[in-house]
Nucleic acid binder design. Structure first.
Lengths: 233, 233
DNA sequence: ACAAAAGTGTTGTTCCTACACCCATGA
DNA sequence: TCATGGGTGTAGGAACAACACTTTTGT
């Protein structure tokens, strides 16, 4: 049942950049393409947008199909539409990025017919299409955004230690922070709730904290601004 | 000459949010639609993307057609694609926003067949399609971005006074800044070049400054970060 | 001389930085 | 008792906030 239009139209897809924190390494989920073009290459998970489907819904659907993950941080990144970015014709793709908490969402490593795998950001294979460029933009966005909005917590388990949080920032931003100063600053913000201590660790048990979203939003109303700087060497 | 596809495809358009500073008021350029749907309503300038045209090129073309302006700050905002946002069918639009310097680019008020006009942000007419939502997102983005990136200069003439710059920030962010502290801070950043004085003003002539982009980029390499806060009441 | 806007001095406070040190736990 | 990471004290300096004041121009 063909569809006919007076003027030519592009295809529209969504692609997802899914970041996860594995220990202290930041990783991204890629799938190995089973079909041409770029058969055998690694690519960002994604697919075509249905005609009666929101863009964001489509991206959430793709994410769910590929990883089984739902209800995570999710945001539009950018739209790529250069003619020639897909050998099959004019394909415009709307990219979304997601932050998932690997320790609480056991992402199924493989799904559908495709092979899926987590890659460290510094051990990436060559990517299909312009996905290298897309991924780079996602990394830049993450680096930029994590400093001014409390989205880093999305990568951690619900309960985390200050050391984990510090390590997260050091990983994403690339740099060291002074422990004393990091703690003082983040605690003074008043957006973390202190919980119980860790148990069964072979050293002094750390306090666990939870990000207090309600408190954060409350503070935002009166001109509070979240900001993390990497200063120390 | 019809085009036929196996699956249905959406149309893709670009829309432009064009901000300009008129005196101390921030304005946006709208056009009055001459055709259905929303005939007679005000809308963002925009149009369909050609099949062999970059998205950004399309947006720049629309901007040029509507305003005659070229070579201004220009950046992708967001992509809107809810089914139902356009009564003609599935239309996905990629929105771009631009900052133009009204005092140096005498924008032609009207062009093409459409009527074009600048509106203050607090005196907006009802907008066609979901353009109200699009414009609101552009305003939020501008407010957010202007604090962390030196894009405010794009709205001013090449040579400007510190008072003009301060007034710009007060307008966009909505608030007052202490003159003394604003000056101290912005000058200490070292990204402004002092030029000659004003002439023929009925008060003490102010120094003119130019944004020194090269200097800014140089500083960026070594972890400098631009930031403007509105603190004073 | 006056109005208007440009531009400066200064002070108390808060925040940032760097470094050294102590604490609690399991092995 | 040792290794390991958790957690704190503190001092000097830089940046911020608030307010009052002086300067330079055209009329």
């Amino acid at each position: 049942m063909p569809y006919t239009y007076e003027y030519p139209r592009p295809s529209v897809t969504v692609d997802c950049i899914i970041f996860g924190l594995d220990g202290s390494a930041l990783k991204v989920l890629l799938i190995e393409r089973g079909l041409e073009p770029f058969k055998g290459h690694w690519a960002l998970p994604g697919g075509f947008v249905d005609m009666d489907e929101n863009l964001e819904t489509a991206a959430i659907r793709e994410l769910e199909e590929e990883t089984g993950v739902t209800d995570v941080f999710f945001e539009q990144l950018y739209t790529f539409g250069n003619p020639g970015r897909d050998p099959r014709g004019r394909v415009i793709t709307v990219a979304y990025y997601a932050l998932v908490n690997l320790s609480e969402h056991p992402v199924r490593a493989s799904s559908d017919a495709d092979n899926a795998e987590w890659f460290k950001l510094d051990e990436l294979p060559p990517l299909a299409f312009d996905h290298g460029k897309v991924l780079n933009m996602a990394i830049d966005r993450l680096k930029g955004k994590v400093r001014y909005q409390p989205i880093g917590f999305e990568l951690l388990p619900e309960k985390f230690t200050l050391s984990q949080l510090q390590s997260l920032y050091e990983t994403i931003l690339g740099g060291k922070v002074n422990k004393r100063n990091f703690r003082t600053k983040i605690l003074k913000m008043g957006i973390l709730k202190q919980l119980e201590r860790q148990e069964d660790v072979p050293h002094r048990p750390a306090y666990l904290y939870r990000f207090d979203k309600a408190q954060y939003e409350e503070k935002m109303k009166s001109g509070f601004n979240f900001e993390i700087n990497m200063s120390a060497k």
